[in-house]
Amino acid sequence: MKNSITIGKVKGIDIEINISWLVVFGLVTFTLAMSFFPANYPEWSSFARWSLAAIMAIALFGSVLLHELSHSVVSIGLGIDVKKITLFIFGGVAQIEREPDDPVKELKIAIAGPMMSLAIAITTLVASRLLSLVEAPEFVTVPITYIANVNLILAFFNMIPAFPLDGGRVLRAAIWKAKGDIEVATRIASAAGGVFGYLIIFLGIFLALTGNIVNGIWFVFIGWFINQASQSSYQNLIVNDIFGKIKVRKFMSENPVTVNSSISIKDMVEDYIYKYKYSSFPVKSRDRVIGIVNIERIKSTQRDSWEYTDVEAVTEKLNESLVVSPEDSVAEAMNKIFRNEIGRVLVMDGDTLVGIVSRTDILNHIRIYNQLH
């Protein structure tokens, strides 16, 4: 996700915080310190209110992270890799490498998050009650009770049967198991997600019209997000289904124009970019492909040095995200294309360059498919 900062790694999974999540942190801290605490605990000092508010906002962060980590750990245990977890304004999302190939796996992954949230809620609720019995101070019991309530909300909200919420994924798994068709199951679960999204939007409008403007706007945004996510989830499934049936060999552009690594950037711009009108070119050194160079990497170099800088200096070296095999599916190529910063992949048969697939190729195919269907 763009505008995200990696803060660490857990079990090989990158943990990211999107800048938008800082809005949530600020809102939660401000609301607790300036509204909730003064109304319920007026005797607390300003320092105590702001300190506990920040701690409780961090507890919210931890709760969402544990929720997503539960999905991820179960997914990895079932053989489906997870690249990263991103926390953003509407919660968190685990970037699972591929969809489960079995409804039982889907169910296990989906239920893991709410079960973790429920377990945290029960544990912290019991701890809060025990601390109250021994008359622990309120500034200890209040944050723990807050964690319990937050996790109860996370568990029950996520179990609403509206795709792509966890409950929607449970619904999809049940329909998939009954019908034996993931496309039908996704269409029904996504439709439920769309309906739920509209209900949340209408509720938000009602709240805004009755004077609760802040909560009303918040509900509208959440409803809009769920509605859009449910639609895009179904569309992504269809697109992956289309490209999952096509081999790269039948889809690629053959005999791509290559650039020698030893020529200058100036010569490349004049003799290749302006001539062929491509934004990227495979780069060869002694007849061996060593990577890709594109306009963005050229632009990062001072223009007055183009004549003296060779192409190899700005070449993105070959790596796993830039290469596919002719026998891979276009869906695999597409996943790499939309993850790397180049916008295309090289098709390599061993050490031999046989073709290239670009983001434009994929988008044009989708456009034509939509026109024909």
Rank of each mutant, 00 (worst) to 15 (best):
F243V: 07
N236P: 00
S262T: 14
A94G: 13
V239T: 15
I15T: 04
R344N: 15
W44R: 02
I290A: 07
V10C: 07
I109D: 03
T352G: 00
K284N: 13
S128Q: 08
E106N: 14
M1H: 11
V239L: 09
D267F: 03
I89N: 05
W224H: 04
G113F: 05
I213D: 01
V259M: 10
R172S: 10
G168I: 02
F30W: 13
L130G: 05
H67M: 14
A333R: 05
F61H: 07
I292M: 12
G167V: 02
V259S: 05
F90A: 05
R288P: 00
I120L: 14
E254G: 07
P103E: 03
V74T: 08
P326G: 11
K2R: 11
E254R: 10
A173S: 15
V347C: 12
Q235H: 05
T145C: 00
L60V: 15
I5N: 02
E332Y: 08
F202N: 01
V257K: 12
R249H: 06
S132P: 00
V354Q: 06
I160A: 05
A121V: 08
K245G: 00
A155H: 02
K250F: 10
F47R: 04
V64S: 02
F221S: 03
S51P: 00
I182A: 13
A185D: 06
Y274G: 00
M115W: 01
E296H: 10
L237S: 04
Q95T: 13
I265V: 14
A162P: 07
I226N: 02
L133S: 14
R288C: 05
F221L: 15
L22A: 13
L207C: 00
I222C: 07
D241T: 14
S20Q: 03
A59W: 05
F88H: 12
V126I: 15
P42Y: 04
I15V: 14
I298Y: 05
E312P: 02
E316T: 15
I13V: 13
K179A: 15
D361T: 09
G77T: 04
L87Y: 05
A148I: 09
I19K: 10
K275T: 14
V64E: 01
G291T: 09
F61E: 03
T186L: 13
I153T: 12
V28R: 04
N215W: 15
G113D: 02
N240R: 13
E296C: 00
V150I: 15
S305M: 09
I122F: 14
I19A: 15
N158Q: 12
G343I: 11
W176G: 10
E341Q: 13
N370L: 12
N236G: 13
K284A: 07
V73C: 03
L322W: 07
V74Y: 04
I342N: 02
V330C: 11
L207S: 11
A148E: 12
V259N: 04
I362R: 00
V257S: 02
E183D: 04
A136K: 04
T124M: 13
N158A: 04
N151P: 01
A112P: 00
I238N: 07
L27T: 03
K177N: 09
V314P: 03
I109C: 08
Y234C: 12
L131W: 07
S280K: 11
G167N: 06
A313M: 10
I200L: 15
P114Q: 12
D310F: 01
F202K: 06
K247I: 01
N294L: 10
K299P: 08
G168W: 04
L107M: 14
F37Q: 03
